[in-house]
Amino acid sequence: MRILVTGGAGFIASHIVDALIEQRHTVAVVDKLSTGFVENINKRARFYPIDILDDALEDVFAVFRPEVVIHHAAQIDGQMSLRQPRFDAETNIIGTLNVLERCIEHKTRKIICASSAAVYGPPAAPVIREDHPIRPLTGYGISKYTSETYIRMYGEQHNLDFTILRYANVYGERQGAKGEAGVVSIFADRLLAGEAPIIYGDGEQVRDFIYVKDVVAANLQALSLGHCCTVNIGTGERTSVNRLFGFLRDLTGSGTQPVYQAERTGDIKHSCLDNTLAASVLAWRPVHTLESGLASTVRDRAGLAVTARNQTTL
């Protein structure tokens, strides 16, 4: 199958590209490398270093003619979306529309789109189902939900199949340590360096932390399942930030204590996703425990730290 992955140099999508190539699909990557890294890109994938907003995206579709698009290119920082809402909307909404227009013009069969638990806003239940009210607190949540709505409209009007995957808090190897999305990497890096991580609020806020390889598996299932539906991708397990910190402190062998600061605007107190629908329509459930996923992530961050130290001493 010919599959185009937008944002394929980034954290999650680069893992998806690796898995697709392992399954012998023909893969192309579109990424402007603003937050992604060229070294993340599988050497067997075709690489187009362009922005999804560029007119050059038309040429990529014309040449590659993808059967499926896996759309991950996005502005993902909730705090930035509050500071720069126009930039967030242009990237996430207009960028998605540009991808959709190209899909229709070149008869792409399906789009699989990465969305977010941020669309829900404050939870009305301990575990959030897909029919939960939509009340986003950030521009990011708004732009993601707007993109979802456009995808559903294009699906109905143009017979474009789609699966929208609303991710919980994804973590794992290759995750950046910038912005609030990378809390696991941020905590691990600071603990490995003997520095104190910052926890905003009292640390009792709950998140649903899902390992990147489980997210990859959901995307692979969506290639042939999950027709025209919107699905949560999470573990359904509630983990406080304090508990997460405790796991990481034990894994790194650090004796460092966190520094607590005031809550930030737009941060949701509790977020955990029900994955019952994903089990039904995608035949998917997460298989990695939080402990095993964190252990793999810490090993990866420790290796990166050693490499960085060695480079500075050359």
Rank of each mutant, 00 (worst) to 15 (best):
I3P: 02
A9P: 03
S14E: 03
I16G: 05
R24L: 02
V30C: 06
E39A: 12
N42A: 15
K43M: 10
K43R: 14
R44D: 14
A45Y: 02
Y48P: 02
D51L: 09
D55Q: 10
D59V: 10
V60E: 01
F61A: 09
P66S: 06
V69S: 08
Q75V: 11
Q75T: 11
D77H: 10
G78Y: 04
G78H: 00
Q79E: 10
F87Q: 13
E90M: 15
T91D: 07
N92S: 07
T96K: 03
E101I: 05
R102I: 00
R102T: 07
C103E: 04
E105A: 15
H106D: 00
K110S: 10
A118V: 09
Y120M: 04
P123V: 01
A125I: 02
A125R: 05
E130C: 04
Y145K: 14
R152D: 06
L160N: 00
L160Q: 00
F162T: 10
E173C: 08
L192W: 07
G203R: 09
V206P: 08
F209S: 04
K213S: 11
A217L: 05
A218R: 04
H227W: 10
H227D: 14
V231I: 04
E237K: 12
V241W: 00
R243G: 00
F245Y: 15
R249H: 09
T256M: 07
Q257G: 13
V259L: 09
Y260I: 11
R264Q: 15
G266S: 09
I268S: 05
C272R: 01
T276W: 01
S280P: 00
A283K: 13
A295R: 13
S296E: 15
T297V: 07
D300Y: 15
N310I: 12
N310V: 12
Q311W: 04
